[in-house]
Nucleic acid binder design. Structure first.
Lengths: 211, 211, 211, 211
DNA sequence: TATGAATGAGCGTTCATTCAT
DNA sequence: GATGAATGAACGCTCATTCAT
């Protein structure tokens, strides 16, 4: 068993955290290096440049979230509602107290389209998230509507994370997660993100529901 | 009868657009100056520094959105549902096709807490938005629940704008606006952001309300 | 009359001298700046980058040599032999005592083809030189042979300048210039760079020609 | 039966080629190492530093040219004219098609005097060349004049190599070599570099001359 | 012997800012 | 009020060199 965490990983870790909390352009290579006990120049032993560091950080984030969050939605042995719950819990737990928002959201906004290598990875991340949500929702809503609901849930969560930057209040994110879970609640249906866009008649009357 | 746009205003306009699309740290004073036909040095006649430019741009955004968007919610002569609709329409119209996201959202994520002058203004913006939505919703949902619904709607819209950076698909934002409008829909009930996660008892029974 | 020599010119002067004596890659922008009393960053007020400085230096060298050296060959009022003499004298005088060789030769060898902007200018310089020599020689040798003789004379002069770097002995350059002048010598005939390589028969019998 | 090329030799080969084509300051130790399949650090097992690599490369070039080129001039069994021809042929063959010029010429110009270890070796190279040419020429021209003619021929060849960098035309070098050979041509006379301004007939038979 | 990690100085460049004109 | 020159710190990056393994 090799020593866990190579130096390269340490650089990625530090970069991930700094990019997430301070943004890409406002984080210098020297800061990343200092954050893992290296000098500026040494970082270039592992990475060809700042962009490559960020690309590796995004890759790491994609992989991690796939393994630790979105993977939870794929176990066919677990009923969809439970899978959805653990997925939502994971999201809430991951972001609720965290300062600095979401790497993917931040870089999506900050760097936008200007660096294709980034965009591609951010897209993969959101695709993963959508796929996970769709997987648990399509049993009840059908693939198309489930996809929409997934997108809506992701938007709401991302927006909540963004608002937390300003309000420092995790309640918005918590409600977002709760409402998402409610999409597969008991008899339920309806719920938060569910309803709109669904013909009234195929919606169970919501007022009968408990939360 | 406003006096013709001064140079100062031109700087703010240019800065607003550049900060929005390229981020604060990735926009140089020289670029701002060039964008309004000035030289770098001249900008410093109007502003003490880059931060002051950004603060003014944020002020402008707060004022503008207050006048052109959130103000729509305040006319007591118009029924709440109509006011909500025009508010949601304004949001959708403003952001739907636009590249580069939302200044406030971008700066909130990019600069985060590091510059209090920014944070304060971003907060004011979101407070305005929340107040506008709450104003039209509280008739049906009560102040407390209306406030939550307002936050949820804002989160979802902001998240949709963020996702649009990646997906280039305005549908998520459109659904978000539609669902928000649905909060005061006729017989309505439920409604996108409304239902899930709210204890039945502390929610004004929505189905009894008229718009 | 404006103050001779703007700062931009001072940068070019300093760069010309440094590039000539120390080479392009071994000369730093900071050194150029220091040589004219500026800081590194200030140089970028005048030039977009190091390459542009060098391009301007090469332009200057092309212009200067055109005006001060090769121009001497173009006065139709002066007999060719005298024009050739003053041209050769100018070359000898310019390079004889000088340390550091010839900017054009140095950059041609050091940067070679890798920077087209440089190559183009170096080529123009040698073309000018060749044109000047050809102009005075073609009366006696015909255009084609005059062009060859011009190239040969240039090669020999450049090589002599190069050797001077090592030997510190101006004699080789002096002989090169003398032999070039001899190409149009009185009764003259052939000589130095002229003769060899041309079959006697296809050579206009030089001793019969008038200048 | 030389021992198979050692790694040290491989480094020298790679360095020679890189210094010649890209210049000393523009060639990094890492590039040299990569060019012979080593890692940067490993090079320092064979050489104390970059300067030592270059010194070894220059030594190699001196030795090689002595053996393969200038040596041709020393065989007393061969008549001078033939020796001169093979010498000139070797020079032409070696440089005619070659991109990147002559190591010695390049370093002479680029590094100039700043590194005495280099200068010394470059000087040795040119001395060898001069000695070789002088050896074959002194029979006809006498030692002193032969030395001058040798220098002139070297200058012209070096200049031609330099010009080839710009013109890509080997003709100038070819003429230079041809003219050099002509210095010992049959009835001789003329002779490119030989005569300088002196028509065959009005030249005292050179082989009678003293300096 | 060979490696790869690390260093630290320096490079070309950018940029917010100042200031004399 | 507007300019353009100048600054100086910082940035991303390169590189010759060292050294433990």
């Amino acid at each position: 068993m090799p020593t866990r965490k190579t130096d390269r990983d340490a650089v990625i870790d530090a970069a991930l955290e700094l990019f997430r909390t301070r943004g890409y352009h406002h984080t210098s290579v020297a800061e990343i290096a200092a954050a893992c006990g290296l000098l500026k120049g040494s970082v270039y032993h592992y990475f060809a440049g700042k962009q490559e560091i960020a690309a590796a950080a995004l890759d790491r984030a994609v992989t991690d979230s796939r393994e630790k969050i979105f993977g939870l939605a794929n176990d066919p042995a677990v009923p969809p509602a439970a899978r959805l719950r653990s997925l939502a819990d994971a999201v809430e737990r991951y972001f609720a107290g965290r300062e600095g928002g979401c790497l993917m959201g931040s870089l999506a906004l900050e760097v936008g389209d200007s660096i294709p290598e980034f965009r591609e990875r951010v897209q993969r991340y959101f695709d993963d998230w959508k796929a996970a949500l769709t997987a648990v929702l399509e049993g009840r809503y059908g693939a198309a509507r489930a996809g929409e609901l997934a997108e809506d849930a992701i938007a709401r969560a991302q927006g909540a994370i963004l608002l937390m930057e300003v309000t420092k209040d995790p309640a918005v994110l918590q409600r977002a997660c709760r409402d998402t879970v409610a999409l597969l609640d008991g008899v339920s249906k309806t719920g938060a993100l569910a309803a709109a866009g669904t013909a009234a008649k195929d919606r169970p009357e919501p007022w009968k529901q408990a939360s």
